[in-house]
Structures are given as C-alpha cells and as structure tokens.
Design a protein around this nucleic acid. Structure first.
Lengths: 134, 134
DNA sequence: ATAAGGTCTGTACTATACTACAGAGTCAAG
DNA sequence: CTTGACTCTGTAGTATAGTACAGACCTTAT
C-alpha cells in the first residue's frame, strides 16, 4: 500500500497542491493524518472528494455551497428532517440549473440550424430562448 | 414611450447600477446612446441581456465565456462555419454540465430516501454517484 | 552521503466579478 | 425654483478562489 502524499493526490485529482491545502483550511476536505515529519498522508477517498469539488464548482456552486452539500452526509441521524429539507432545496436548485441549461442548449441548436441553412445570423435565438422562468 | 435610465434597467433586470456600467466596460452589453446630459438611455432588450448574463453566470460560465456566447450571434454570415463550430462546442459543454447535475440530483434524491427511511446517514451517496465521466 | 525534488508554514500576490465612494452635474415633483 | 433623488467619471476597496513564493525541513535514488 503506497502512501498518498499531497503531490500525488494533486496529480490524481487534477488540482494544485496549494489548492488542496487551501481546501483543508476552508473545511472542504478533512485534515489528514501526518507522518512524524509533518507530511500529510491522504486516504484514497480524498481524490474523489477533490473531483467532486472541482465539478460542483464548474456547475456554479460556490465553495460555501459545496461545503453545505458535503456536510449533508455528516449530519447525525436525529437531524434527519433537517438534512432532507436541505437536500430537497439543493435538488430544487439543481433542477432550475438543468432547465436553464436545456433552454440554452435549445437556443444554440437553433443557432447552428440557422447557420447550416446558409442564411445570415441576424436575429439572436439565444436571448429569446432565455425568457421566463424566474 | 418612457426612457430607460440605468437605474430603471437595474431594477428591472435585478442587478446593480454599478454592475451595468461594469458590464459595459467589459463589452457584455452595448454602449447605449446618451442624452445631451450624458445620461445613458437603454433600449428594452438590455433587460433581457442582463438577465441572460446573470443566469449564465449562475450556471458556471465566466463573463468571458458569456461574452463568447453572446458574440456568436454577431458573427457575419460568411463566418458561418466558424460560428457553428463554436456553438457546437458550447452545446457540448452544456450537455456535460447537464449530465453532471443530473448525477448530483440522483445522489441527493438517494440521500433523501435514506433519510426518509429513518436510518442514520452514515455512508455518503453523493461522492459515490459523482465518479466517472471525465 | 548527497543532490534533486517534494513538503512544511506563513505570508503575499493575482484574477474575476463586482461594490462603494467622492465630487460634480442633472432631473423632476411639489 | 428648490431640493432630494438620480447619474456622471474615476478611482479604490471587497469577496471569492486560488497561486506563488521564501526559507526551512524531509525523502529517495544514485
């Protein structure tokens, strides 16, 4: 069993070493155990965790929100009602994001159609497809 | 026909006045015409445009990317091939975002199920559902 | 055993996307 | 025709999310 130093984790998760230390300070990943030398030793799951953070970020979640998402699973069983409420709120956020993305995709597809038809791209289908849904 | 000053546009689009001037500097909205006094006078479309920016931002697009999206519609008809390529790349990005969001939603739904069953929330279904898809 | 490269803490700097003035001029309701 | 709200330019400050050292210590391959 090879030991996972911060550099290896960074390479595997495709983030920077400094970023990992930054996430540790921000509470997005647990403080790992240390060697006698002080070197951090990571469990394998950390890689998944870091990838989760990166992806969630790409989807427009802030680190604060990502922390909230991750913390959902840590709640004690007796706060179950509370956990479910928050999870359902996040699901709602996600569904709104998906709908908006789908409208954007539709608008862009329309744009490529217009394009394919060799007609000039005069009117913008992007903005028009973004109306409504507040 | 009432004139749309920056403050009115800001209220209608639900953004700050300073944000509008910032977006103008960054080229995300066109420079509007001015009164003799120097006051900006906006056309109605600006409101949709600002809403588009706000939403795209919530979906994890940077202002730079949003500008690219908006600029797609301005390309001259003869650069059609080029426009289509870029639009298709954006469609691909969007589809990836949608898939990731759907996996997150699935994971969260699973979490709420676990919750509803009154069992303790011990193992995290969120991270596990986020694997694969690079 | 030594040199190259990895890691440590701590602090400082950067990019992005605003946000907040200051000081001066403009508008419009009473 | 004033007065309070709005707008102007320009510059400075903030929050978020990293990124980059410096100076010192650790590891490992030769």
């Amino acid at each position: 069993m090879e030991s996972l130093t911060i550099g290896k984790v960074a390479r595997l998760a495709e983030v920077g070493v400094e970023t990992i230390r930054f996430y540790e300070r921000e509470g997005l990943i647990d403080e790992p155990k240390r060697r006698e030398s002080g070197y951090r030793e990571y469990p394998h799951e950390t890689i998944q965790r870091l990838r989760f953070v990166r992806r969630a970020k790409d989807l427009g979640f802030t680190l604060k929100e990502i922390k909230e998402l991750l913390d959902l699973r840590l709640e004690p069983g007796n706060a179950c009602e509370h956990v479910r409420e928050r999870a359902e709120a996040k699901i709602h956020d996600i569904e709104t994001k998906v709908r908006t993305l789908q409208r954007m995709r539709k608008a862009l597809t329309k744009l490529t159609m217009t394009c394919r038809g060799k007609r000039p791209v005069s009117e913008c289908p992007i903005l028009e497809a973004m109306e409504g849904d507040e």
